[in-house]
Structures are given as structure tokens and as C-alpha cells.
Design a protein around this nucleic acid. Structure first.
Lengths: 148, 148
DNA sequence: TAAAATGTAACTATACTTGTTTCATATTCA
DNA sequence: TGAATATGAAACAAGTATAGTTACATTTTA
């Protein structure tokens, strides 16, 4: 029933890119901030790339940069880039179609679940990456990248 | 993290109880409508029991009945009875606390995620089991229990 | 050409869900 | 009393998803 932590990590990645706009960050550098393996980061960067939220340069001194300004990226954009399945799933196997209840419940539930998900996504759509970074920077005791 | 269909099955169970108010339904009877194993149904009935939404009678001619009127049960009640973990999880392992971004992102995300979840639950809270059953009964071609 | 970076495949460990079998326990009724 | 019919719970297998890891081919720059 829950999403994965990819979404949270993706927001983390993009916030780190936004707060370091003058350099392309490598997956190793990002992984040091997230506290995981660089391949995990590259997997998520691939999703963000395909969604057009970042772009990546190969080779020495390569890395990833934001493809858009942070106030033009909403959390819902990031959510859709990293999570695909429905939050509220219907039955694992189809109910008994010979029973009135089994035959009629899924379309009714499907509509309600769609509305519930839409309400959640509306909250995410109203929050930009720029706002997230701004709220983070209201926290005390600043420092730079993980290693510097 | 995989998704659970317990919530959908729980609504199905309660809708079936509501549409058959004159008899206690056995887990086998319910399982025939849901199209699964009776033990799967009993597991979910246990959650609904503990949440006070149904009550169960042992023995021959036993089974389960609704503990409250269907217009006093919301989908959010059922949701809380059957699902416990958060819809939008934070990082699997704690980010690097030596990095400003790693140190500040989780509280910010946690607040936003709570609001997003609350919006979803508000939609569920505004829909009663009675409304769900009513919408189901607007469907054509009625019939009774799976076996009768 | 060497170094540094990406993208991707493959593998492991872990966890959760679903389905199943089994059995002890409770209740009803002939 | 005892058979029948239920529940509740434990244990297990199979399937799926995630997170982490290793390894390697590819791309780019110096």
C-alpha cells in the first residue's frame, strides 16, 4: 500500500542540486549526502532524466544538473517521475462476478480511490522544489556539501 | 515495498455484510464473494473486529455482523483498521547528518507528506460505507449472495 | 591513453502480501 | 454427550518489490 522511498530520495537529490547550482554533481557525491550506494542514486537519476527534470554529462568532471528552475518543478512532478503504481490498489484477484457485490464493487472503489489519490497529488502539486529548499534553509547550522 | 489490497477487500467484506443484514456471514461465504481463501478473510475480519467495526459469533450458525450502522462507518475508519504504515515513506536509512541537505530534508518532507496523506484520508473520511453500498446498488442486474 | 564519470545488468538480502494447510477452541443442536 | 460448524492463530510457500552491492561496457576530458 505504500510507495517506495525513491520519492523522498529523489527530492533529496534535486534539493542538493538546487543548493549547488554551479557544479554538476556526481552520483558518488550525491550518494554521500543521501548515505547510500551511488548505483542507487544513478537508478533514480535515470528516472529523473527520463522525466526531463535533470540532465547528465558523461566523462571526467561530468555529473547531473537541474534541467529547469526549482520553482518550475513541483513535488508532484517528482512523484510521477519516481512512482508508478497506484497508492490504493483494488483486489489482488478479481472478485466473484456471480455475486452482485463482487460484480459491482470494483468500479465504485476505483472512482473513490482515484479521487483520494488526486487529493494527495494536489498537495504535492502545490509545493515547488524551490519552496522545499527554502524551508530547509530556515534550519540552523548551515554547511556545504557532505565532504567539503 | 509492495502494495496491499487489504483495504479494498475490507470494504468489500463490509459492503457484503451491509447488503445481508439479516444473517451472520461466515468467512467461507465471504470468501466466495471475494474469490479468495477463508483464512485471508478471517485475517482481515480480525483487524475489523479489533477496530470495533464488526463483531463475530463462534459456533454453528456463527459468523460476522456489522457492529455499527453503515452510515456511521467511513472509508477512513476502514483504511485505518487495515493499513498501518505511511503512504509516502522517508529515506530507508538516515541521510548524512554532516551535510546540510541531509540534516534538514527529513523534517521538511515529513510535514509535507503528512499533509498529502491527510488530504487523501479526508476524501476517505467523507465517504461512508452506506454511500458505497448505495452507489453499488445503482449498478444493473442484481442478484443475491454468491451461492444463493 | 588514463582517469572519471555514467548506464545497465546481475545478484543478494530483506520484507511484505497472498494463499494454503493445520489445529486448538468455542458454540449450537440433535 | 457428541457431532457439526464456526473462529483464531500458527506456520509455511510463493510471488513481488525494494535496497544495496559488484562488475563492466561506454562516454568524455585532460
Amino acid at each position: 500500500m505504500s510507495a517506495s522511498s525513491r520519492f523522498a530520495v529523489a527530492v533529496h537529490i534535486l534539493a542538493l542540486l538546487e543548493t549547488n547550482p554551479n557544479q554538476a554533481l556526481s552520483s558518488s557525491c550525491i550518494a554521500a549526502s543521501v548515505n547510500t550506494n551511488p548505483v542507487v542514486i544513478r537508478r533514480i537519476l535515470g528516472m529523473l532524466n527520463r522525466a526531463g527534470l535533470v540532465y547528465t554529462e558523461y566523462g571526467a568532471d561530468g555529473g547531473t544538473r537541474l534541467a529547469r528552475s526549482a520553482d518550475e518543478i513541483t513535488l508532484n512532478d517528482i512523484y510521477h517521475a519516481t512512482e508508478n503504481c497506484r497508492i490504493l490498489p483494488l483486489h489482488a484477484s478479481s472478485p466473484n462476478q456471480d455475486c452482485r457485490c463482487g460484480r459491482t464493487i470494483q468500479p465504485v472503489l476505483s472512482t473513490i480511490f482515484s479521487h483520494a489519490e488526486a487529493a494527495m497529488q494536489q498537495v504535492l502539486a502545490n509545493k515547488s522544489l524551490a519552496e522545499v529548499v527554502n524551508e530547509m534553509q530556515c534550519k540552523p547550522n548551515p554547511s556545504a556539501l557532505p565532504h567539503s
